[in-house]
Design a protein around this nucleic acid. Structure first.
Lengths: 196, 196
DNA sequence: CACATCTTGGAACGATCAGTACAAGACTCT
DNA sequence: AGAGTCTTGTACTGATCGTTCCAAGATGTG
């Protein structure tokens, strides 16, 4: 039926990522993946490998796409820890508002919850979470937070990030999500009041 | 093999609940349920019905067990909205600290994310979430919060509750979870400073 | 054109899924 | 004791899971 690939590999991986994004690991069946990409089973297996490999490549694809956005949001000079948290969560809110992308990213939520994913994949998820946490912590330090405050805020921001995914998938409105994010950004206000 | 039931129905339901709790709906296979309860398939189906019915009864069992605790934590007089949030989240932390109960309650987390659960079950989950939200809101009003503040704090406390489940399942330490909960309880501090 | 290489659709594999059928055993009641 | 009811273990169903196999067709190279 074919001699050379009849699809764009990168675009296919993007769609694969969105299927895992939407369904998590376990419920992203091969049938759903073929349906979501338009590819046949053979093309999927021949190009990417088995399901867990596919998931790991989706994770890499996610990092490649979104980590620069988080990096950019965190790298600029921030007047306060509060601004760091707000900038970070705004990236998440923008991602949720993107109509070309499914609601509620379950890539790192559902994958850590079940052993259906192999150890290598779980380790990747954990490394990604730890990386974001460290990235946040560093940006918070740069914005004037002390050690303890930076650690605490990084953790809480990560927690808010996860809850945004869950609430979004549970059907909460974008206004509700923005409210949660805004509240999280007010967290450092107690010890680091914004200059009037 | 048997004439009268050879197990305690209520204890069996408790164990069923814990299996859904631990695995969510989809990954709680009948085999896992039989293994978790010690019952045979026939006993499970004969006593409770099919899987979705079993899940709904688990939800009811959860509400019956834990809603009174939340109710009790919220019903007493609270000096401030902050105290309400802290009391509510403390119930969650105590539940997580309970060694007889699995880490990270996925009863209402994973169930809303996938269509594997039937409409009736999803509606129950949604009703339970809405109920907790209303309960929180009312307690916050009673503690002196105005309408808008109560709505916002109820939402954020619910969000924190969900993130505690996800983080707990993801392997975060109980110290980290307590930190997240404590931070959430500091949220109302901005507009409702604690009396010195 | 001929040959090797690659891709693709579709069939098929064993495993597991939720759910059911049924017979054997244990109990209550008369 | 005997009849009827309930419970339970086991085997089974059709569907779906992830994965592999293979032949057919399309391309690139000689």
């Amino acid at each position: 039926m074919a001699g050379r690939k009849q699809f764009d590999v990168d675009e296919a991986l993007r769609r694969v990522m969105h299927v895992f994004w939407r369904w998590g690991y376990s419920e992203a069946s091969i049938d759903r993946l073929t349906e979501g990409t338009g590819l046949g089973r053979s093309s999927l297996y021949g190009t990417f490998g088995d399901k867990s490999t596919l998931f790991r490549k989706s994770l890499q694809r996610y990092a490649q796409t979104y980590h620069p956005l988080y990096d950019q949001a965190l790298s600029g000079p921030h007047p306060s820890p509060s601004a760091v948290v707000a900038a970070y969560l705004q990236v998440t809110l923008n991602r949720i508002a993107d109509p070309t992308v499914p609601d509620g990213c379950l890539l790192t939520v559902s994958a850590t919850q079940f052993p259906a994913l192999d150890a290598e994949g779980q380790a990747m998820v954990r490394a990604m979470i730890d990386g974001l946490r460290a990235m946040l912590q560093q940006a918070l330090l740069a914005a004037g937070a002390d050690e303890q405050e930076a650690a605490e805020l990084a953790l809480c921001t990560l927690a808010t990030n996860k809850s945004l995914a869950v609430l979004s998938r549970a059907g909460f409105s974008s206004e509700d999500l923005a409210t949660v994010a805004a509240a999280a950004a007010r967290l450092p206000g107690r010890t680091h009041p914004l200059p009037e």
